[in-house]
Amino acid sequence: MIRAALLSLCLAGSAAAQDAGATARAAAADLEAAAIQLDAAEDARDRVAALTQTVQAFESGLAAMRDGLRNVTIRELELSRKLHAQEAEVAQLLGALQSIGTSADTETLIHPAGALASARAGMLVASLTPALTARTEALKADLTEVSTLRHLQQDAVDRLAKGLQGVQQARTELSQAMADRTDLPRRFTADPVRTALLIAATETLEGFASGLSELSDTPISPNDASIESRKGRLTLPVQGQILRRAGEADAAGVERPGIVVATRPQALVTTPTAATIRYRGPLLDYGLVAILEPQPDMLIVLAGLDTVFGEIGEVLPEGSPVGLMGGEPPNLQAAVSQSGERAGTARPETLYIEVRQGDGPVDPMDWFTTDKG
């Protein structure tokens, strides 16, 4: 029974080691693949699409690496504390094993109470020896795991540093590729004067959205643009976690009909479906805004951006870059810290997403899907 318990403990430790390192190893492979994608993007026919996929691959890999590094760090700390707490027990165990293994004197094998007592003592030692051996193997496995996890930590930190450099390079190249892009079709050309008058005449997002139809004389063909069949299955425009859902009050008690997604600094924002850029620029108290029109009488409002790509009137293919979130790119120290005690501040930026159909807003989660709440 003792042996079974010790064996179970040893196997549990082995499984924990695999779980702690699996995410980090998988993330390392993702970052390696993203680096290869970045090199390949140089010769890609559609450089914007290739760089968009590269940035997203880096973002996914970096997020996974942070989680993996955090798991490895926690597991290594648990084992180190466990071994430290067992120092006295380990010393006693080593003493017992040494005394059993090195005693060769005949008198040590004879019990003072006689032969029967000596036989019983021998049976007791024989039954304890496998248990002591199993315990020794368990301790050896813990020490080996600590060493493995420490090596894995260093490798994860090195790969995290390279990944941070890679994603910044990819974002810079993507911004330049978007600035150089001239192949997007246009539904209409922006009228700066009419747009400025509309902004000056409206005090709410609803009023501005209602007036957007006046800025274009080229409606979208309903037959070509309907996305009703994809309702509830659109991917969120940015990698992040939903911070507030539609109608939930913020810290100031303000309720808005859209959702708020918490993102990492400089996260890439893309269009969830093909859409026309109806507006891009500062708007009211929403900060920098991009308003997309995927189909007639439907608008997707993305607010809180730091950089916006494209021009008003351009038609963006699905998955095209819309902009970047704000914030300073994390350095290695901050990234590693976010994997531990500062994990709650890992997503300091927020993107506001509002969907409007007809004359009013609808719950964005009627359109988007997410596996995280």
Rank of each mutant, 00 (worst) to 15 (best):
S127P: 00
L109S: 08
A104H: 14
L109W: 12
V90N: 12
S99Y: 07
R120A: 06
G95I: 03
G101K: 00
A121D: 07
A104Q: 10
L93R: 07
A96M: 11
L109M: 07
Q98D: 13
R120M: 06
H111F: 00
H111I: 00
T102G: 01
S127D: 14
A91M: 06
E89Y: 06
P112K: 02
I100G: 02
P130F: 05
T102W: 01
A96Y: 03
V90L: 15
P130C: 04
L128A: 14
S127V: 04
Q98W: 06
V125C: 09
A126D: 09
A131T: 04
D105R: 14
G95R: 11
L128S: 12
S99F: 04
R120Y: 09
T106L: 14
A134E: 14
Q92G: 10
T106H: 08
G95Q: 13
R120W: 07
E89N: 07
T106F: 08
L124Q: 15
L132N: 03
T133D: 08
H111N: 07
Q92H: 11
L109K: 05
T133L: 11
R135Y: 04
A134M: 09
A131E: 10
A104G: 05
A126L: 13
T106S: 10
A104K: 13
A96S: 11
S118C: 02
I110N: 04
L94F: 02
I100S: 09
A134D: 09
A115R: 09
S127Q: 14
G95F: 04
I100L: 15
L93S: 01
E107S: 08
T133H: 06
Q98I: 03
G114P: 02
A119T: 07
A91L: 08
L128K: 15
A134W: 04
T106Q: 11
A91E: 12
S103R: 08
T108D: 13
A121E: 05
A96Q: 14
A91K: 13
I110E: 10
S127H: 13
L124A: 15
A91G: 05
T108A: 14
S127C: 03
A121Y: 06
T108Y: 11
G101T: 06
V90S: 15
L124I: 11
L97Q: 12
L128C: 05
A121F: 06
G95M: 05
R135W: 07
A115V: 07
A134K: 06
L128I: 02
V90A: 15
S103W: 04
L124Y: 13
T129E: 08
G114V: 00
A121L: 10
A119Q: 10
A104V: 09
R135S: 05
D105Y: 01
G122I: 00
A117K: 04
S103T: 14
A113E: 14
L97W: 00
A91N: 07
H111G: 00
A119P: 00
V125H: 13
A121K: 11
M123C: 05
P112G: 01
M123H: 13
S118L: 01
T108R: 15
A96K: 15
A119H: 09
A131G: 06
G114T: 03
A119C: 04
A121C: 02
